[in-house]
Design a protein around this nucleic acid. Structure first.
Lengths: 325, 325
DNA sequence: TTGTATGCGTTATCAG
DNA sequence: CTGATAACGCATACAA
């Protein structure tokens, strides 16, 4: 059995309350008392029991970063961990497995969730408060923090046009996974706004946000009669798949095809050619998200807020101007 | 306030104990009673309070997968989540941030830890039980589950020799991070066993297990007077860095240089050329690891166990025989 | 088969 | 400034 406040109190010859006061940094404790208690604390190697504390206070001081796919979250996770630490919160990544949905696995005991996945569509009422991450589209009952994805796509297309591309295709995820969506209408609008024509069959809507989906979509694109000379992908995972498809098809990037993603993932820095991408500043995004969830925990019934974080286009090799190739 | 057992008991006109029995699937409950209780449970949308349950039972039914770097853990995490679900456990990924070490952030309340990092060197006594993952080197007080890393390295080298390579270099992580280590002595032994000479300067020991470290090490290797024609890396992250370094230096893989890693990461399937690697079966490894930690939770004082899981060499493009290039 | 009562380790309320 | 003491919500020994 681990040592409790009572053990410490007994050793230090004080009441439980006094020990608790010392542990929690309560200011009105006399010096002598404090030292006596601290000595006992150290001697017994006391660690507060989280469950008891949580039961009593109703708070865990733990935040969940809920993700569908743990694979590319390194950068964001680190940023969130640091941002949360400033507020005294710990962060765990909660990888939801679609196959385990039904299985009776105990729910997590956390004060709030940062949802990087689009499951569930609507967070259950009664559970901990939720902030959606990744795309700041207003609507829905939850707070949202993320870049303006439509705007990011537009910036990507503008960049492709500016670097001399004209037949610009797109790969998005079919509705249901908004974080990586490029809609049919959005595709047409964006292209027209950039002074280019949307080409029939040049928008691929894939079922999931995976590298393999990007691969298949890009293969389809590259086998068309009017082959695109650029493809904008709704996520970096899709873009990396597209990069591989091009390589396997003998299509040179960036000479014959430009590829750009959205997300600013670390992995995109380590492909060859390196992947151009539209990225949010992860530290900024994480700070906003943590600030939101902390505020929401404090006032659960406040009106939902949407925070749009700025994004930057990172032009790397995969979209280098084709005239030099 | 959320609904408690008492609320349900009141509504169903039974005692708290009976409700508890129903919730926990206690068999000796009469049918009528059970239905009455279940109706009340549903009507009030009852969810047990985790903290209270944990305080009472001393168990959280949550396992932590503790990692230093969340970036490449997707495959393993999924496998662990599934393996744990069979035992009624939930899994969270605990990303430890070296910069947050000092900060007063609350400890996690879990029943056990699967350590994929080498920090801390010795898990603190008194905390939850620990199983080390990734390399099954005996010694130390903790259980271990993983492949035989020395053997994996040997298999990689054998494969390189079999495919016609002779000047075989290596990139490992300097002592302190055993999961990605290729020692000085090990390097020499392995090469001699494979009938090749260890060349001076052909073992690079890098400070951390990152793509950037692999990149720098490979650059150094490629600028040497006797340039290697193959490099075996202690991890896939290092190997991917090496792949990039070769590309940037204009060295063709696999024609001029073969590259192989260890780990079987998903990312390695999506580089071009695709990365050859020595991989454990993640599902098998996860099952072993979860079985270990569950056993350890049940009997904390049993003697530590080391489980060696089998590995397979996945020969992909990055080590294709050079005669065809 | 079901109800009553106790305690898990903390924090918070209230006297002293 | 410090000490008793009462919850927090649940599971269980024991009684009925």
């Amino acid at each position: 059995m681990s040592t409790t406040l009572r053990d410490v109190a007994r050793l230090a010859q004080v009441s439980v309350k006094t020990v608790s006061n010392v542990v929690n940094g309560y200011p009105h404790v006399s010096d002598g008392m404090r030292r006596r208690v601290e000595a006992a604390l150290a001697a017994l190697d006391y660690h507060p029991n989280r469950a008891a504390r949580t039961l009593r206070t109703g708070r865990t001081r733990v935040l969940a970063l809920t993700v569908a796919e743990a694979d590319g979250v390194g950068v964001l996770a680190r940023a969130v961990v640091r941002a949360a630490a400033r507020h005294g919160y710990r962060v765990v990544i909660d990888p939801v497995d679609p196959e385990c949905q039904g299985v009776a696995t105990p729910p997590l005991s956390v004060d709030g969730c940062l949802l990087l996945t689009d499951l569930p569509a609507e967070p259950p009422t009664g559970g901990p408060p939720v902030v959606r991450l990744g795309q700041a589209t207003a609507g829905g009952s939850a707070d949202r923090v993320g870049i303006d994805h439509a705007r990011a796509t537009r910036d990507a297309v503008d960049h492709l046009v500016a670097t001399g591309r004209s037949r610009i295709a797109a790969i998005g995820v079919a509705p249901g996974q908004p974080s990586a969506t490029i809609g049919r209408q959005g595709y047409a609008e964006v292209l027209r706004a950039a002074g280019r024509d949307p080409l029939p069959g040049h928008l691929q809507q894939v079922p999931a946000d995976q590298r393999s989906d990007g691969y298949r979509a890009a293969r389809a694109l590259l086998s068309q009669r009017r082959r695109p000379d650029a493809v904008v992908c709704a996520s970096d995972a899709l873009a990396i798949g597209a990069l591989c498809a091009a390589a396997d098809a003998g299509v040179r990037v960036p000479q014959d095809l430009a590829v750009i993603g959205v997300g600013g993932s670390e992995e995109g820095r380590w492909t060859r050619p390196a992947l151009s991408t539209v990225a949010a500043d992860p530290a900024f995004l994480a700070r906003q998200a943590v600030a939101r969830i902390v505020a929401r925990i404090a006032r659960p019934d406040a009106a939902p807020v949407t925070v749009v974080t700025p994004h930057t286009l990172l032009a790397r090799e995969s979209t280098r101007t084709s005239t030099s190739g």
